[in-house]
Every structure is written in structure tokens, then in C-alpha cells.
Design a protein around this nucleic acid. Structure first.
Length: 703
DNA sequence: CCACGATGTA
């Protein structure tokens, strides 16, 4: 009786002060040992987990418990992994428990300790737990399974994650969500989309948590079509659009180039937290909309949301892109006043800001004020700054420092080589190249992706494993000839490639973005822009050629530069460069867009059927082009609208009907627009986010 | 005896 009364008291306990009193009360009673153990475990649980939690108190109560039961152990383990610091405490507690041999670990123990291991990326430890899972026979428990899955996903071991996943016989909502989120955080966007489709095929209904990961995958890939489909899907399935979904959408639209749509969603958010504001500010900054980013920041302050270090990354890079030196300095000091320790990225932004403004000397003295010695990211920023501002001497020093600090990082050699080339120091350039060769170093190629028909294609320079490699090479050859005929002066990066490879067959070097653009030209014949996302390790300016291609082919080309420094693998060894530097010192903001005058656009409209399926957003996620076509019955007749039968893209409850016209061009199923059956209103353009003016002035009659 | 897993920004 008394046991129950006290248990209820603990559950309703408002503060840790009261819990201390209850603790004292419990200790002074002469209670049966089992009751005492139970009540003390509840107190440990309260202290470790509740809102007013106090992990130290939990630890003390635990230490004073004669034989803590498994609930106490579990609460303490979880408590330590919830406090957010990179503590190894959960695992050492677990080890202690195992060594003692009693009480024996249960499914909760395993799940909690696995969660702790994924938090701190403790691979070895997690594997030990995995071994324990095998022996304990708890491997069939769903929580343990997702714990393992999440652990391997967070440690970025795809193979083991997939192995665990495949061995789960019954995959429910959380299992699928974990796998999708794992793929997404590992950057395997097509796998994430694939898993999402499979999940739908196996009739598991996704929820908002699932969708956040899917949206995030779209953002990473710059996959706008899929992103829009997902957005429509969420609305149609009436999945609650909470603050997480909204921020993910804001981020997605911004990353995919639709900053207007991002702003619209952001505006409609009833509550905006720190991450939501940060997403918006970073999005604006990335688009070069410096003033708007700063405006957003002041509105954020007005609404009393404290900015985070990420917010300031956005702010500082906005200042850098806008050339706002004094503002940047001011924000820097207000950041320091807020108690945010400037990190590597912040210094990177600031150095970038000064270099862009031509204040390389100031940047150098700023670097000297840093509390720690400059790291490679800083030297790289300075090197690029010196290159842009033609400061040969200082640049050379930065280059030397860089090589001294990171002699095994290939990207540094490439940067230095480019630097010398830009200063026409050919001897020094070939010396750098020679050093690389001697050391057996190969450049880690850049990678560019393009989304076509719902599939994200990644192109790596020099990698011709793409199934349509032959066709792409042909297109590239034609592009090359046409660019050459246009009288284009080869850019330094084109020259470099030819020097390096001594292959002069193709006038233009086969940079990954050229491959992506060539593929875009090959696969799409509409006036829709070609959007590519560049993932490079170093800044290589290839935009002159892109501009010319855009002009020659009368296609708008939108490029997103994402200069990414991360861990990467070279042929011989794993480098430990894990610095995520915000270094985009290319003298422009990361979004580049070449708009063509409307009149010169190719108005022959040949949207593939896929797009209609994508915008439908009704049921199962459409994916491969072929698959969509197989869902598309014979209603695709020349100029005919068949509003009743077949319903075209049967994505289950799809309510959209296409207006289709055969234009006699390469694609069999050109799509001009869509009609809503309820209203018979023509929805002029699935690109509702961009002015559709060019779509209907081609003289085609749309029903 | 009590509980637990998957989610957004650089």
C-alpha cells in the first residue's frame, strides 16, 4: 500500500528538491528489500530522465541503492546518453553491469546502450553490444533491432546497416524510417528514395518522421521534382506539417533553388524555432540574398529566438557574399557577446569575407588573432583569396603552410597547382604536379549530380560506368565542337586537364558537371532549366563554358556549387580530413543561374510523363521512368484528352489528369499541362513556382 | 512491478 503511494508521489514529483525529501523518507522507512529496491529505482529513473532531471543526483541515489535493479541501471544509462554531451558513461556502466553479471541486461539495456553508442559514434563498443545481442537472444526484439540499425547507420556502415535491416522479418514504420534516415544521412539519396518506395509497396504508411528524412534527401540531392512530389504527397496524405517538416521543406526548396517557395513556407509557419530561422537564413545566404538574410536575422532577434552557431554561419556567409565587411565584423562581435565560441567555420567565413572584399592583408592579421593556430581550411581560404586578388607572395606562403600541415591531402596540391597556373607560374605548377606524381597521389575527382525522371544521377570525372556512357560521350563531343566553334577561349581549368592527361581529342575537359549537363541535354528536351548540383573538393571555375553551353543550346542552366570538405577515400588510404569548411571563395555566391531571354527559349514542349506522376503526389512514389510508362495506358494519344479512362499515371489515388499532345519530337509522351477533374480547370504548368509564360505561346492548342 | 526505437539548419 505504502509502496504504491510513494510510487505515485515520485511520478508526480515537481522538483528535484522534493525528490530528495522523498528519497530521505524512503531510506528512513523499514521497508522490505524488494520494495526499497523498486522505489529507489523509480527515484533514479525520475532524476535521470524527467524534465527537471539531475543526473548527478541519480548517480548518488544509484550509488546508495544496495542492489540496484535493472530498471535503475537502464535509467542511469539512458540518463547519461540524454544529457547530450559526448559522454562515455553509458557504455562504461553497461560494461560494469556485464562484468558484475547481475542483474542481467534486458532489451531496454541493449536499446539504450546502442543509442548511446550511436550518439558518440562508438563503433567498437556498439559491435560488442551487437555480439551481446546475439548471445542474449534479444535479437528478435523490435527496439533492439532498430537500435542496431540506427547504430550502424549513424556510424555510416551501410553494409552492416543493410544486413541488420534485411534480417528483420517484420518491418514496421520505425524500422523503415530508421533505414531511410540512415540512407539520407549517409548521403545515399537514391537508396533513401528506393527504401521509401519499397516501404509504400509493403503497405507501411509513412508518418511525418519518415517524411522529414525523405525531404532531407531531396535537399541533399537538389532533387526538386521529387521534393515537390513529396510535398504534395504530404499534403494529400494529410500528414501533419509540423515545425520539423516545415523547416525541412524550407531547406529543401532553398537547396533546390526555389528560394521563393522556401520563403513562402517559412512565412506560413506559425512557430519558428532556432533551426527553422537558421534554415531560412542559410538558404537566403546561399542564394546571395544578403540583405534579406540579415533582415531575417533581425526578425529572428525580435521574436526572441536565440541564434545558434549555425545561424551565424549563414549570417557571416551572407555578409561575405554581399561584400558587407563592417556588418560582418559587427555580427562577429555580437556572436562573441552571445557566448558562441567562434568555430573553424566561423573563422573560415570571416577570412572569406575579408578576402572577397580584397582585404587579404586584414584577413591575414585576423588569422593571427585566432586563439588557435590556423588549420588547413583557413589556409585554403587564404590561398584562394590570394589567387583572386593576385597576391602571389602571400598566396605562396599559404600554400606552403598548407602542404606542411597536410602533406597527404591531394586537394591542397590541386589548389596550389591552380594557384600557380593562375599566376602563369608554369614551372612551379609542373613542380607541384610532379611532386604529386612522385607521391603517387591522384586527384579526388569532383562529383556532380542531376535529377532526371526522379532518379539522381551522379557523375564523377573520368568515371564512365554510367549505362548511357556512350551517348553521353557523343553529346559531349558535339558540345565540345560547338563551344570550340563559338570561338571560346579555353579557361585555365580546361587547359590544366589537357596538360595533365595529354588527351587532346576533346576540346573541353570532361569535368563532372559537363557530364551532368551533357546528360541533361541528352535526356530532356523541354524549356525547363537544367539543374545540377556540384560537389567539389576544391573550387574550380568552369562557369564560363557553362554559360556558353547555355547560350548555344538555348537552355537555362542552374548550377549549385557545393564545395565540400569531408572525409574521403583515395586509392591508397583513408584521409582523416573531416573538416567541414565553408569555403566558397569563388567570388560569387553558390547559386549561379543563367537565364535566357524568353524569346530564345526552346518552346517545343516535351515534358516526359514522369513529371505528371511526380506532381500527382497521390500514392506510391513513382520512380523509374520505365515504370511510370508502364502505368501509362494508351490514353496518350495525339492531342487527345482522355479524362475518364486509365487516368494515366495510376499512382493509386492520383486525381490529376494530363493534357497530352504528341508533338512528333523525340519523346513519345509530351505533356503540356494538367487538368483537375473536379473543376476541369487547366493547371497551366506543373512548375507552379516559376512563371509559366513560355509554356503556352507555342501555338499548340491545349484542349 | 515502471520505460525504450526513427525526424530539420553549416
Amino acid at each position: 500500500m505504502e509502496e504504491e503511494r510513494i510510487a505515485r508521489l515520485i511520478e508526480k514529483c515537481p522538483t528535484t528538491r522534493v525528490i530528495r525529501q522523498i528519497h530521505a523518507h524512503v531510506l528512513t522507512r523499514l521497508l522490505p528489500i524488494s520494495t526499497l529496491s523498486f522505489l529507489l529505482s523509480k527515484i533514479v529513473g525520475f532524476c535521470a530522465l524527467s524534465l527537471h532531471g539531475d543526473i548527478d543526483l541519480a548517480r548518488k541515489v544509484f550509488a546508495l541503492t544496495p542492489n540496484p535493479n535493472i530498471f535503475s541501471w537502464n535509467s542511469l544509462i539512458r540518463g547519461y546518453s540524454l544529457i547530450g554531451i559526448q559522454s562515455r558513461m553509458p557504455f562504461s556502466l553497461y560494461k560494469k553491469l556485464v562484468r558484475k553479471g547481475y542483474p542481467s541486461a534486458n532489451t531496454f539495456t541493449l536499446a539504450f546502450v546502442l543509442k548511446a553508442c550511436s550518439n558518440i559514434l562508438a563503433f567498437e563498443e556498439g559491435q560488442q553490444v551487437h555480439a551481446r545481442v546475439f548471445r542474449s537472444g534479444f535479437g528478435s526484439n523490435s527496439f533492439v533491432q532498430t537500435g542496431l540499425l540506427n547504430f550502424y547507420a549513424k556510424c555510416e556502415d551501410i553494409e552492416l546497416a543493410e544486413k541488420v535491416f534485411n534480417e528483420i522479418p517484420e518491418r514496421g514504420l520505425v524500422e523503415w524510417s530508421t533505414m531511410i534516415s540512415g540512407y539520407a544521412t549517409m548521403g545515399l539519396v537514391n537508396e533513401a528514395f528506393g527504401a521509401f518506395r519499397e516501404m509504400q509497396t509493403s503497405k507501411v504508411v509513412p508518418d511525418k518522421v519518415t517524411m522529414v528524412s525523405v525531404i532531407s534527401a531531396c535537399a541533399m540531392a537538389g532533387a526538386l521534382d521529387i521534393g515537390r512530389w513529396v510535398h504534395t504527397y504530404i499534403e494529400k496524405q494529410m500528414i501533419e506539417i509540423d515545425i520539423m517538416i516545415s523547416s525541412a521543406l524550407v531547406n529543401m526548396y532553398a537547396k533546390c533553388g526555389c528560394i521563393e517557395k522556401a520563403k513562402e513556407i517559412f512565412k506560413g509557419m506559425p512557430v519558428k524555432d532556432q533551426k527553422a530561422w537558421s534554415s531560412m537564413i542559410v538558404g537566403l545566404a546561399v542564394h546571395g540574398l544578403s540583405e534579406e538574410a540579415l533582415e531575417a536575422f533581425s526578425r529572428m532577434e525580435e521574436s526572441k529566438v536565440t541564434p545558434s552557431h549555425v545561424t551565424f554561419i549563414g549570417i557571416l556567409s551572407a555578409c561575405a557574399h554581399g561584400g558587407l565587411v563592417s556588418e560582418g565584423r559587427r555580427y562577429w562581435s555580437s556572436m562573441v557577446e552571445l557566448g558562441i565560441e567562434p568555430s573553424l567555420e566561423h573563422y573560415g567565413c570571416m577570412v572569406d569575407l575579408l578576402c572577397r572584399a580584397g582585404l587579404v592583408d586584414d584577413a591575414c592579421s585576423f588569422v593571427q588573432t585566432m586563439p588557435f593556430s590556423p588549420n588547413p581550411v583557413i589556409w585554403r581560404t587564404l590561398l584562394i583569396g590570394c589567387q583572386k586578388n593576385k597576391m602571389f607572395h602571400k598566396g605562396e606562403i599559404a600554400g606552403e603552410q598548407l602542404l606542411a600541415l597536410e602533406p597527404t591531402n591531394t586537394e591542397n596540391y590541386i589548389l596550389l597547382s591552380n594557384f600557380y597556373a593562375s599566376a602563369s607560374q608554369w614551372d612551379k605548377m609542373s613542380h607541384v604536379r610532379k611532386t604529386m606524381k612522385e607521391k603517387g597521389m591522384k586527384a579526388v575527382p569532383g562529383c556532380t549530380s542531376i535529377e532526371i525522371d526522379g532518379l539522381v544521377h551522379e557523375f564523377v570525372m573520368g568515371d564512365w560506368h554510367h549505362p548511357e556512357a556512350k551517348e553521353i560521350r557523343q553529346v559531349l563531343r558535339v558540345i565540345s565542337e560547338r563551344v570550340s566553334d563559338s570561338g571560346h577561349e579555353p579557361h585555365i581549368s580546361d587547359v590544366l586537364h589537357n596538360v595533365a592527361d595529354e588527351e587532346k581529342g576533346i576540346y573541353l575537359c570532361e569535368h563532372s558537371e559537363r557530364l551532368a549537363i551533357a546528360y541533361g541535354l541528352l535526356k530532356t528536351k523541354s524549356p525547363a532549366p537544367i539543374r545540377i548540383v556540384k560537389n567539389l573538393r576544391v573550387c574550380i571555375d568552369c562557369h564560363e563554358v557553362t554559360k556558353i553551353i547555355s547560350k548555344i543550346y538555348e537552355r537555362e542552366i542552374i548550377v549549385r556549387d557545393r564545395v565540400r570538405f569531408h572525409k574521403f577515400v583515395n586509392e591508397n588510404e583513408l584521409f582523416s580530413t573531416v573538416t567541414r569548411g565553408v569555403v566558397t571563395s569563388c567570388g560569387r555566391h553558390p547559386w549561379v543561374r543563367w537565364k535566357l531571354p524568353a524569346a530564345s527559349r526552346d518552346v517545343r514542349l516535351t515534358y516526359v510523363v514522369m513529371h505528371a506522376a511526380l506532381i500527382g503526389g497521390g500514392g506510391r512514389m513513382p520512380f523509374a521512368h520505365d515504370e511510370v510508362l508502364s502505368h501509362t495506358p494508351a490514353y496518350v494519344n495525339a492531342g487527345q484528352l482522355n479524362a475518364t479512362e486509365g487516368n494515366g499515371l495510376n499512382v493509386e489515388n492520383d486525381v490529376w489528369i494530363m493534357v497530352v499532345a504528341r508533338l512528333g519530337l523525340e519523346n513519345e509522351h509530351p505533356v503540356l499541362g494538367y487538368v483537375r477533374p473536379e473543376t476541369e480547370q487547366l493547371v497551366p504548368n506543373y512548375l507552379a513556382y516559376e512563371p509559366p509564360t513560355h509554356m503556352y505561346d507555342a501555338g499548340y492548342t491545349v484542349m
